[in-house]
């Protein structure tokens, strides 16, 4: 089987997304769960860049926006983690029950 670089990149992107999903399911540390979400965003960026080669450069603009939103998400998410750490003395996602009534 002869894979070109674009199909191989799409498969790599699928693999990275799957690893990110597995990481979200398997880790308890909220910061590492966040890092897995960043990995999933990057996997999507990779597939968007593959598509931008043949479908037009607007896809790269979308990657740009994904990066900006990821930066905003990381800032707010880490601030929430700091606030939760102060409350619970830990970052274990199993112990967060602020929204449970």
């Amino acid at each position: 089987m002869n894979l070109d670089i674009e199909s191989a990149s799409l498969i790599l992107s699928a693999f990275l997304f799957a690893v990110g999903t597995a990481g979200v399911l398997v880790r308890r540390n909220a910061i590492i769960v966040f890092m897995c979400v960043e990995l999933m965003l990057n996997a999507v960026n990779l597939s968007l860049i593959v598509f931008s080669r043949s479908l037009g450069l607007e896809a790269q603009v979308l990657v740009f926006f994904v990066m900006a939103v990821a930066a905003a998400e990381a800032a707010v998410g880490l601030a929430i983690i700091i606030a939760i750490f102060r409350h619970y003395e830990g970052v274990d996602v199993d112990r967060f029950n602020l929204l449970r009534w």
Partner: peptide
Amino acid sequence: ALVAGSALFAAV
């Protein structure tokens, strides 16, 4: 996690 990850990867 292994099953979900593999299924997702296999599908895509």
